[in-house]
Design a protein around this nucleic acid. Sequence first.
DNA 1: CGCCGCCTATGACGCGCGTCATAGTAGCGG
DNA 2: CCGCTACTATGACGCGCGTCATAGGCGGCG
Lengths: 198, 198
Amino acid sequence: MADSGRGPRERMVFSAAQLIRRGGVTATSMRDVVAHARAPRGSLQHYFPGGKDQLVNEAVDWAGRYAAKRIARFLGEMPEPSPSGLFAAMVRQWTDEYETVGFASGCPVAAATADCAESTESTRTAAAAAFACWRRPVAEALTEMGVPSQRAESLATLMISTLEGAILMARAERDAGALTTVARELAPVLDGAVTRRR
Amino acid sequence: MADSGRGPRERMVFSAAQLIRRGGVTATSMRDVVAHARAPRGSLQHYFPGGKDQLVNEAVDWAGRYAAKRIARFLGEMPEPSPSGLFAAMVRQWTDEYETVGFASGCPVAAATADCAESTESTRTAAAAAFACWRRPVAEALTEMGVPSQRAESLATLMISTLEGAILMARAERDAGALTTVARELAPVLDGAVTRRR
DNA sequence: CGCCGCCTATGACGCGCGTCATAGTAGCGG
DNA sequence: CCGCTACTATGACGCGCGTCATAGGCGGCG
């Protein structure tokens, strides 16, 4: 969450993701992005000759990779990993944010999907890639914990779907209750899928 | 899904919901709405003096009530109701749509939340109300099936969250797989919550 | 120095938006 | 026929958008 990535280009992509998280793709203007990134406006057409689409797609891309990296981080921080523990960590990231800085932002991939899935093929593809990029480490972690690999894929899909939906609901209600609820309710089915001891 | 509600006013609200489903709130213009509803443009300021916000809020409202009514309908169609059966029906509504007319549209409440939760308080409130309106009959149905009422509330939240997330994923990937997956994986935990025979 | 890449600066263009102002029409009770 | 209310019609306004065109600075290398 550092305010500045190294180069101005990185900062713009990061800022785009940040703004898309808040208000959606359509409501995020390129002028807003350069202002938020404290970047020169002239750099837009230099770094992103593909226009807004390119910027948005890279922001979605970045978000997918970021989510994937978080999974690895969560696993590293867990003394004894379990499926429910991983999901709890994923959920906690959001409850923490909502409790500390408020309910201003959702998931940029979700916003991009809702806004662009029909209008902009390339962004839809980017969102699909982001989901896949996010799901992979989750599924791998589950198999590592002893979940059969096919089942792990399904559960990864379940975890991310449920998380995304709960984020939406929590934001609408300005109450993180939905997040904690789904974490609690999903725990047994996740842990129940472990067939071999690690 | 009838193309025309009775009055022009109803048609406009319905069309707004329809367009928001596709491209989000910000990308949906009021001129688009009247065109889609084949309604006179002059009627906008007559029926919706509150401007776009009012129109959007009523569309979200409509969507919430529509979802709630569908739950009642599903229950009526099920010979022997079960939690997993209800969830399967909710999911099937979306897989059916995606298989027949394509992945153009998502959930209007989700889109409104992603686009307006931060920018427009009234719409955020409308979305929260829509979720609540949708959740109530689900929870009631679960208690009717023998789920303890507090648990039923939690499971209703889980079902709707998971469904919303799976809709997003399916739309991004243009593949209803996520929907069928979550229906399958959630079934046991839902049915396992029934403590008394009906 | 001179030149040439990279990056930045800035103003303009055309468009579509939400909103407003003003006027017009239809039906109907008096 | 009048007048009133409900609804429709239409053009204008101001704004912010994405994009483009053009013109710089500016550091390094021959």
